[in-house]
Each structure stands twice: as structure tokens, then as C-alpha cells.
Simulated scan of single mutants.
Amino acid sequence: MQATSTVDSPPTPTDISSRSWRRAFKDIHDGLRQRQLWAHLGWQDIKQRYRRSVLGPLWITIGMGVTAGGLGLMYSTIFGQDPGKYVPYMTVGFMIWYFIQGCLLSGTEVFIHNEGLIKQLPAPISVHVLRTVWREFLLFLHNLVIYLLILAIFQPPVSWTVITAVPAIFLLLLNGGWVVLLFGVASTRFRDIPPVINSFMQLLFFMSPIVWPIDVLEQNAGPRAWLAQLNPIYHFVEIARAPMLGTNQSWHHWVVVVAFTVGGWLVALLVLRNYRARVPYWV
């Protein structure tokens, strides 16, 4: 029997490791170019939620209005606050919180819930990330109607500084991107992460100055009030809420948010580079 020898063929130019920065950035670039796809899917998510409903997505606005009116008047009495100042404070805080909460909770299941599309549709995984962030932003825009009503009813001292809310919301969107991407990949690999995040969301809500005013904490906690600065949600809420209500704002909130934006995207891009190709197998 004649023995045969085999010689390894040299690697071809197409044999490029999936773990490359080029492919990671190409995934994001291709995802952004497919705007019609993720924009349509995001809007369909909202329409599907309120299918056969008479008012449709208007229930999002109605829900926010009921929450702002009911809880605002109740908690203003509990905290001894002026309803004219407290209701706008709490309402805008809820609007921003719902967006943050939506990105966190939806991000943990973004790839798990889209298993069929990921396995059948040859699209960048960033499409599903953009779809989720776009959907949560649409919900935020629906709630923006209540903000306009707040301006008409309570007339907070809003000035030209309200335009700084635009870059603040842009930063929220940027951070929503890396949150959904990072937690989406991690949760696809480790299925214990979604229930853990769900368990801590209520605690995170009550630890953030959404329903309780920060000045009340400073009056009652004294030197311990600085602990609120350790909560990143506080800074994300404050950079958008302060200009939307015409209140004073410290520059350090922007520093913290920009630092989280840069650091978060660096970690998310590293995860995208190393584990992008494994997501279809993990789901």
C-alpha cells in the first residue's frame, strides 16, 4: 500500500480571522447603512404591541400622563414639595428612566428574541442593536407629548439653554447602543444575566433621583449625600432633565456621562470584535 503525504496549503487572502477590528467596524457600518431595515422593524415592534387597539401607540402617551398626574400629586404631598415644580421634575425623570430601563432590559434579550432572524437573515448583528435603540427612542418621543403638556400647564422656567437637551439625548442614544450591544452578547452567552438585571432594576430605580428630589437627600443625608454621585443613572438623567426644566446644572454630570460613553463603547467594541461571529451559535 503506497503511502501518500499531504502538504498544508498556504492560507488564502480570504482566510481572515473573524476576530478583527475591520470586521467589527464593518458590522456597525453595514448596520447603519441598512437604516430602512432596522427602522421598519423597530416601528413594527411598537405597532405589534398595540395591534387591534383603538388608540394604538397613543396608549404610551396616555400611560405616561396617568403616571405623571397620579404619582406626581401623591409624591409631592409625601415629600412636601410644590406640585408645580415636583410634577415636571418627576415626569421628565420618568421619561429618561423609561428609555434607560428599556435599553437595559431589551438589551439583555435582543439576540435571544431575534434567534430566527439571526439564523435566517444574513444581516449584521448591529441591525438588531439599532432596532432596539430606535424602538426605545420612539417610545421616548411618544412620551415627549406629555412634556409639552407639562410646559403648558406648569410653565417651568425654560430658557434658551433647553437646546442643550439635544446633545444630552444624543448621548443617551449613544450609550443605549453600547448597553444593548454589550449586554446582548453577554446575555446570549450567559443566560443568567437577564433575570439578574431584571431583579436589580427596581432597586436601581429607587436608588436614582427619579421620584425623590436630590435636594431632599442633601437636606436629610448631610455629608452622605455624595453617595448619590456614585450612581451613573443620576448623571444620565440630570444632563437631560436640567435643561428641559430650566434648572441649574453642574458640568461634572457631562464629564461622567462622556467618560461612560467612551469607556462603554471601548468595551462593547472589544466584545463585538471577539464574539460577533459566535452570537448565531449561542442563540
Score class of each variant (00 low, 15 high):
1 M>H: 11
3 A>G: 12
6 T>H: 12
7 V>P: 01
8 D>C: 02
10 P>Q: 15
12 T>P: 00
14 T>N: 13
15 D>K: 09
16 I>V: 15
19 R>C: 01
23 R>P: 00
25 F>S: 11
26 K>T: 08
32 L>C: 07
35 R>P: 00
36 Q>F: 15
36 Q>D: 12
39 A>M: 15
43 W>G: 01
52 R>N: 10
52 R>K: 10
54 V>C: 02
56 G>T: 05
58 L>W: 12
59 W>V: 11
60 I>A: 02
63 G>N: 09
64 M>S: 11
71 L>P: 05
72 G>H: 07
78 I>A: 11
78 I>Y: 11
78 I>R: 05
80 G>F: 06
80 G>T: 09
85 K>D: 08
87 V>W: 04
93 G>R: 10
94 F>E: 03
100 I>Q: 10
103 C>N: 12
117 L>F: 10
125 I>S: 02
132 T>D: 02
134 W>A: 10
137 F>H: 09
138 L>S: 08
142 H>Q: 08
144 L>E: 01
146 I>H: 01
150 I>Q: 06
151 L>M: 07
152 A>Q: 07
154 F>Y: 15
155 Q>Y: 05
157 P>Y: 15
158 V>F: 11
159 S>P: 01
159 S>C: 03
159 S>L: 04
162 V>T: 06
171 L>S: 13
181 L>I: 11
183 F>C: 04
187 S>W: 08
196 V>A: 12
197 I>C: 02
201 M>V: 09
203 L>I: 14
204 L>Y: 10
205 F>Q: 11
210 I>C: 04
212 W>D: 04
214 I>E: 15
214 I>M: 12
228 A>K: 06
228 A>D: 00
229 Q>G: 06
230 L>C: 04
230 L>I: 08
234 Y>H: 15
252 H>E: 02
253 H>I: 03
254 W>K: 11
258 V>R: 11
267 V>N: 01
279 V>Q: 01
279 V>L: 01
281 Y>Q: 05
283 V>N: 08
